[in-house]
Each structure stands twice: as C-alpha cells, then as structure tokens.
Design a protein around this nucleic acid. Structure first.
Length: 555
RNA sequence: GCCCUCGUAGCUCAGUAGGAUAGAGCGACCGCCUCCUAAGCGGUAGGCCACAGGUUCGAAUCCUGUCGGGGGCACCA
C-alpha cells in the first residue's frame, strides 16, 4: 500500500529532523496522507508541516523546506517531492514504481486490493431484516446492496465478517399476517372467512394461500381456527423467507445467518438479558411495567421492557438479540437500518451501554429510502390498490447489475431517486454500462490480439518501462491507489464510494484507449500495453466484484 | 414542540477525521470513427457551497441561530 510506504518515509524523515535538533519536535502528530485531486500537486500529499507549524510557531513553508532537506531519497518509489504554499508537501511517484506495480497487480490478481492479512477483528453486518409478512420493497433492495457491499469491503480490508438477517417473525404483525393467509386459504375452499380489518389485504396473500393449498392440500381444514391460524402462519412465514432467500440470492446476496426473533422468545434469552440489565442497576418498575433507564445513557425518555400485561416489548427482545451478538464474540456490530428506524438508535445504544458494552461497538447505518420514478413521474405505491413495485419486480425489470450499482451511487444517508426507464433505456448515460463497457473493451482487445496471433505476456514478460504516455501512467496511478481506497471505504463504512472509483478508473481506461493503440506492429510496445490492459481488467473486475456487479466480456 | 438528517452548477449528486483555484454525471452548445467495441474521447458554457453570525493562519467541512425538504418522537413491530 502506497500510504503505508509514504507514512514510513515521512516517519523516518521526522525522526531524522528530531535527531539533528534542527527542529524541536515535541511529539509527532498523526500523519495524514491524502491523494491529491489535481495532478499538478503530485500524486499524494501531506499537511504535516502545517500541523507542526502551530506548535513550533514557525512558517509552515519553512518547516516543509526543512522536511525536504531531510527526506531520504527513494528513487524507486518517489520521483520528486515539493513544498507548495501554504505548506503542503507533495509526493510524485516515480514512473518505475508505477510500471513495476503492474507485475505486482498481475501476481495478486483476484486478491489485489485486499489486505494481505487479517486485522484480527471480527464484525457482523446485519441488514435487510424485513418482517416476513410480504415481499421486499425497493428500500430493502438498497439496504441489501449497501450491507452486502459493505461486508465485501470490510472483508477486503481484513476483517472477519458475518452477514446476518434478523427475522422479525414475532408479535402482532405476524399474527395478523397468519390470520390473513388463513382467511384466504379458507376462501379458496369456499368457506366465507374475512381477512381481518387491519390485516394484510394485498393480492400476494392469496398467492401464498394458493401455494399452501397446492402443497399441503386441505390438512388445515379440519383444525380449530386458532390452531389452523398458527399452523398456516408458520408455513406462510417459511414461504416468505424462502422467497427472501431467492430474491436476495438473485441479487448476489447470501447471508451467513438467518436469526429468528421467535427463537429468543422460545428460549431464556430475553429473561437473561433483562436480568443482566437489572444486575447493572438500570432497571426499575413503574405503573405495573418494567423499565430500562435509558436516560442514563443519553436517551430522551426511559423505555419499557416488560409491559403491564407481562409481555416483553420488541425493545426487550432486541436487547436480548444484541446481547447475543456480543456474546457470539463480534468486536463490532453494524446494523443497516431503514430511515424509519432512526428514532430507535439512541435507545439501542443506551441499552448496550446498560449491558456494559462500549457504545462504539454498535454502529448503526441509517439508510434513506428509494423514490421510484418512471420517465420522470413518481411511481405511486399503494398497498390498497395493489399498485406496487416490489424489489423482485425491480430486479426483473432492470436486472441485478443495474439495480445494485445504482443503489450504491448515492451516499447511504441521502434519499435516492431511481428512474426505472432511465435505468434500463438510457444505456449510454448509465454509469453501470460505462464501467462494464470498459471491461468488455479490454476483453475485446485481448481477443483481438489473440486472433492476430499476438502472444499475451505473462507476469514479468513485458518490458513495462516502455509505458511512458501520460494516459498510460495515469491509468496505472488509478490502479495502484485501489488498495488504499478500499481500506478507506472500510474505515468510513462507505461502500457507495466504490462506484465513483469505478467510474474514474473506467474513464482513465477509456482515455488511454483513445490515445493509445494497443495492438500495433511494434511487438515490444504491444506486449507492454497488453500487460497494462490485463492489469486494468483485474482492477476493474475486482472493483465490480466488491460492488457485486458482473464484469461482462462483451456488450 | 423536541430529536435526527439533508440543503453545493439548469437537474441528480460527490466532496465534511478543517487545507491548495469547490468536482462528476446528466442536460445545452462545438468537435472526433479508413484504425483493437463511438455504450467511447476532447472542448465550451454553467457556483454568493440555503442564510446570518462565530472559532481558526485557513471553513462547503466545526459551533450557534434562522429558513426550507425528509424522517422520527408507543406498554407497535
């Protein structure tokens, strides 16, 4: 990683300055290295001189100059270092370093961009977690893309990652769902039974009942109504979960664990969690209910754990669930929640603190919603009229690649406008295709070379020093940045940044493509450009891989 | 009313662990295929970073307030 190497150079330089007593360095601040946004400032820069200026009461430019005079020369890595006002130190990577990196990329191949070793930390990412009472909506699709790509990025950054789906399969909503399916089932057998007033009226309930009838026949018919409702609820729930599994799988998302809320109620977990809270002294009784004093930890009001009726609240089971997560040994637990749950964050964080865990071990990513459009017109969704575009409808219409990619083009906490027609028709303006096209073009070049009988060079076989064109070196600059970039995406929990990276990389490739012809009569140059193009394909493919988007060989 | 979040080019949005002249895509306008995929490339135009204060050598970024959009404020899940 480039940043690590620069950190080490900067560190050694500062030590040198300190030893020589040229400057009194009381302590060395954390080195910040950023990729420059403009080439004229070099490739990477640090603001260390400006950070030191305050304490030393010296002009940052003077400090930068001193820094330059002490910096060891590393010709194989850095071509040039310059101080620039108001006190930046800019590093220019050497051409040799850039071109020789290609061998490294090719050697690492699929693992290029991923940390060489694990960082020893485990993290669980919980996402989607829909109630199994009906189809997933497009918002769930967005959380799925965000959660899964975040998990990919964390894995690449060296974390041990688990993906988990929490099944909210307990409580009133489930009972209503069961009763609704049960009524539809009865109706199919010509028994006049009404779907409950506040039950689920959607057409899909009929479909579930139909499948149930086809699969199980009339076995529920003779049961007493309550027993029948429960049995049907169980079957219907399994049907919906299986549907979730299939839809998410078609979207490239596979969970390691499906955790049922009901299982918490069946076991001792909830009681255990409440006892633990009690032991920590945060539980009290009032108005016949049992409360958790979440206000001790910054919540704006205290919350009920056990209702007057003796039933635990959803909050209580959620606490038990989070306790279970920590007891499973995760260092960090990340939840991707829909925006409608954000009022819940403070109390959940309070709860885990009441259990004695640091609040930083629970991270909650609030995902904003998706607004669907069709040719600029908002798609009205109403469960009543049945006018609904579900997540699987969307996948069927635009395809998983387009959906996944576009879901990740906006930062997670800003709402996303998704125009279905634009997504599938305006292909030339579609960033997904722009990136995929770069990959397909590369494959086409390699095919063309092969068809001409040109040998594709293996690692170390091409003379990479022949790559001197600006567009060639710029393309490599984007590629060698990749591992650092992936690490940033992980530390900032910002999977959506990858789409921008992918577009910039594709742009660098497209520019190279128009400026430089790969397969020419110059055998040596052809060989080195083929090596470059092969590496560009690796990085492009790995980027798309993290995004969960396919890398087509032709388009 | 209280809490959270957002407000950046005509549109959709990046950029916020304070840093250099605020970026991209789309839309508009002008160019580029005898040649490995034109689903591409180059160029032009477009900004009081909602507003007002404050902190700082330096603020789109941090703090306070105002205005505007979205969301949330259950012994529901």
């Amino acid at each position: 990683m480039i940043r690590r190497r620069l950190e080490s150079v900067i560190d050694r330089t500062l030590q040198g300055i300190r030893d020589s007593k040229e400057l009194e360095l009381p302590h060395i601040p954390t080195v910040e290295i950023e990729k420059t946004r403009d080439k004229k400032f070099g490739d990477y820069s640090t603001n260390i001189a400006m950070l030191l200026a305050g304490g030393l009461k010296k002009n940052p430019m003077d400090i930068a100059e001193i820094f330059l005079s002490f910096m060891p020369s590393e010709p194989g890595f850095i071509k040039e270092v310059k101080a620039a006002p108001p006190g930046f130190i800019n590093f220019y990577l050497s051409d040799d370093f850039l071109t020789s990196s290609l061998d490294e990329i090719e050697k690492q191949d699929e693992s290029f961009g991923a940390a060489a070793e694990t960082n020893g930390k485990s993290v669980q990412v919980e996402f989607v977690s829909a109630n199994p009472t009906g189809p997933l909506h497009v918002g769930h699709g967005r959380w799925a893309a965000v959660g899964d790509t975040l998990a990919n990025v964390l894995e690449a950054a060296g974390y041990q990652v688990e993906r988990e789906f929490y099944i909210n399969d307990y409580g009133n909503q489930m009972a209503l769902f069961g009763a609704s399916v049960s009524a539809r089932y009865a109706q199919l057998l010509d028994v006049d039974e009404k779907v409950p007033e506040d039950g689920y009226q959607g057409e899909y309930i009929k479909d579930i009942a139909k499948v149930l009838l086809d699969k199980k026949g009339k076995v529920y018919f003779d049961m007493n109504p309550e027993f029948r409702r429960q049995a049907i609820q169980q079957e219907a729930k399994e049907q919906v979960i299986e549907h979730f599994r299939l839809v998410l799988e078609s979207f490239g998302v596979r969970f390691d664990e499906w955790f049922s809320e009901t299982s918490l109620h069946e076991g001792e977990e909830i009681g255990k969690a409440i006892q633990e809270l009690r032991d920590h002294g945060h539980v009290f009784e009032k108005d016949g209910a049992v409360w958790l004093r979440t206000t001790d930890f910054g919540d704006d009001k205290d919350r009920v754990l056990i209702k007057e009726s003796g039933e635990p609240t959803y909050f209580a089971s959620d606490i038990a669930y989070h306790l279970d997560k920590f007891e499973r040994g995760f260092d960090t637990v990340i939840n991707v929640w829909g925006a409608d749950h954000h009022g819940y964050v403070a109390r959940m964080k309070a709860a885990i603190q009441a259990l004695g865990y640091g609040s930083e071990r629970l991270e909650i990513i609030i995902g904003q919603l998706v607004n669907l459009f069709r040719k600029g017109e908002p798609v009205r969704m109403s469960k009543r009229t049945g006018e609904m575009v579900t997540f699987d409808d969307l996948i069927a219409e635009v395809g998983p690649d387009v959906a996944r990619y576009l879901f990740l083009t906006r930062s997670t906490d800003s709402p996303l406008d998704f125009d279905i027609e634009l997504a599938k028709e305006q292909s030339q303006d579609n960033p997904v295709y722009y990136v995929q096209y770069a990959h397909a073009r590369i494959c086409s070049i390699l095919n063309f070379a092969e068809s001409k009988g040109v040998a594709i060079p293996g690692p170390g076989e091409a003379d990479l020093k022949l790559l001197k064109e600006e567009s060639e070196l710029d393309l490599i600059r984007h590629m060698v940045w990749f591992p650092d970039f992936v690490e940033d995406c992980a530390t900032f929990r910002a999977p959506f940044k990858l789409t921008k990276y992918a577009e910039d990389l594709a742009a660098a490739f497209h520019l190279f493509y128009t400026k430089c012809r790969v397969v020419t009569d110059d055998a040596a140059l052809t060989s080195s450009r083929l090596a470059l193009v092969k590496c560009a394909r690796i990085v492009l493919r790995n980027t798309l891989g993290l995004l969960g988007v396919s890398a087509p060989e032709s388009m």
